[in-house]
C-alpha cells in the first residue's frame, strides 16, 4: 500500500492527539496502520463507508453494546476482547450465529498508542477465535479529561438458526433454569484489581464468546425457550428480567449455584453478593423440564460449560418474585438491585 504519511506511526512512544480524530492524514494513518492492518479481512478491505455483506439465510440478528471498563487491562482480558465477546454473546443469546462486527472507538487525547495497539491486537485475536470479522469501524478523539482512555462500541450481525425463536417472554411454569458455570468472575476480577485485593491465585475474568456453547446446547435438541448472558447486574438481575417479561416467578437453590472460592471470598470482603456481580462468559438458559438433563449434558460436554448446573425452576407467581432457598435452608427474595449498591463495572 502506498504510504502518503511519511514516517510510520510511532506506536511505541506515540500518544493519541486531537489530529487522530480530525479526519486528515493523521487519522487515515492511524486507521490504516493500526486498525485496518490488525483487524484485516476482505470485507474491511472494501474500505468504503460501510461494508457490503453477503447475507445468507432469511433472518438476521443485530445487537450493539458500548464498552467502558476501568481498568482497561484486567486478568483474563481487556476492553478489546470484551468488546468482541460482549456483542458476539448478545447475538448468540438470540440463537443466531454471529458473523460480522462493527467497531467504533472513542479515544482520549494523550492515550498511549502502544496501549491502543495492545487493545486492537487483542480484539483481532478475539474476533479470529470467535470466527467473526470486524468489517467496518470509526474513530473519534475527545480532549484530555473527557474520556476514560478508550470507549469501544461494537455492533454485531449474525445469521439466525432456522426454525428457532428465543425470547425473554417465553419462560413457562415448570421450566428448568440452567446456568453454564461459576458466577461473578468477571466483576470480581475487575473489582479486586481496582481495590488492590491480592489472592494466592488472582481472580480471572471469564470473558469468552459463547456462540459455540449455544450451538452445542441447541444442537442437543432440547426445547430451549430463553437464553441470556448475565452481564451487568449479574444472574439476579437477568432472572428478574426474564421473570417480569414472562410474568412468572422462580425458585432458585442457592447451593446449586457454582461460585469459585476466591470470588466468594472477595465478595465477602467487599460486602457484595455474587448473584449481582457481572459475568462475561456465562449463559442462563430456560428450557422445558423434561429436556433439562439433555441440555445440561450438552452444556457440560463443552469446554465453556463444564460446571453447568440446574439452579432452579420457573413457577407460576402473580407477583413475579424470584425466590431462593438459601444454603441455610431458609427462603428469601432475590430482588432487583435497588439504588447504587454496586459500583458499575462493565
Amino acid at each position: 500500500m502506498s504510504r502518503p504519511h511519511g514516517r510510520p506511526l510511532d506506536i511505541r512512544h506515540g500518544r493519541v492527539d486531537m489530529s487522530h480524530g480530525a479526519g486528515g492524514r493523521a487519522m487515515a494513518q492511524l486507521i490504516e496502520e493500526l486498525f485496518a492492518a490488525t483487524l484485516d479481512n476482505p470485507l474491511l478491505r472494501q474500505g468504503n463507508d460501510g461494508a457490503l455483506l453477503p447475507a445468507p439465510g432469511e433472518r438476521l440478528v443485530m445487537a450493539t453494546d458500548s464498552h467502558v471498563v476501568s481498568p482497561l487491562f484486567f486478568a483474563g482480558g481487556d476492553i478489546g476482547s470484551l468488546a468482541v465477546h460482549g456483542t458476539v454473546n448478545d447475538v448468540a443469546m438470540m440463537g443466531a450465529h454471529p458473523r460480522w462486527l462493527s467497531a467504533a472507538f472513542v479515544l482520549e487525547e494523550g492515550f498511549a498508542l502502544a496501549d491502543l495497539q495492545r487493545i486492537v491486537v487483542s480484539m483481532a485475536g478475539a474476533a479470529r477465535e470467535a470466527g467473526v470479522a470486524v468489517v467496518t469501524g470509526d474513530t473519534k478523539v475527545v480532549e484530555r479529561g473527557k474520556g476514560d482512555g478508550v470507549f469501544i462500541t461494537t455492533t454485531g450481525v449474525g445469521v439466525m438458526r432456522a426454525g428457532l425463536t428465543l425470547s425473554g417472554d417465553a419462560a413457562r411454569p415448570g421450566d428448568a433454569i440452567l446456568l453454564s458455570g461459576a458466577i461473578g468472575n468477571h466483576g470480581m476480577a475487575i473489582m479486586s484489581q481496582r481495590q488492590g485485593l491480592e489472592f494466592d491465585a488472582p481472580i480471572v475474568s471469564d470473558t469468552a464468546a459463547l456462540h459455540g456453547l449455544v450451538a452445542a446446547l441447541l444442537d442437543s435438541g432440547a426445547a430451549v425457550r430463553v437464553l441470556r448472558d448475565p452481564t451487568r447486574g449479574g444472574v439476579a438481575t437477568t432472572l428478574n428480567e426474564i421473570a417480569s417479561q414472562s410474568q412468572v416467578g422462580m425458585l432458585l437453590e442457592e447451593g446449586a449455584i457454582p461460585v469459585d472460592a476466591a470470588v466468594e471470598a472477595a465478595c465477602e470482603l467487599l460486602g457484595l453478593d455474587p448473584l449481582y456481580v457481572a459475568n462475561e462468559g456465562k449463559l442462563l438458559a430456560v428450557c422445558a423440564a423434561e429436556d433439562a438433563a439433555r441440555a445440561l449434558a450438552a452444556l457440560r460436554a463443552h469446554p465453556l460449560g463444564l460446571r453447568a448446573a440446574r439452579i432452579g425452576t420457573v413457577r407460576a407467581d402473580a407477583h413475579g418474585f424470584v425466590q431462593m432457598t438459601t444454603r441455610m435452608g431458609g427462603r428469601r427474595v432475590v430482588d432487583w438491585l435497588s439504588g447504587e449498591q454496586l459500583p458499575r463495572i462493565c
Binding site: T326, M328, G329, G330, R331, R332
Partner: peptide, 9 residues
C-alpha cells in the same frame, strides 16, 4: 436473618 431466611428455620 433476612438474607439467609433464618425465620423459616
Amino acid at each position: 436473618i433476612s438474607r439467609y431466611g433464618l425465620a423459616d428455620l
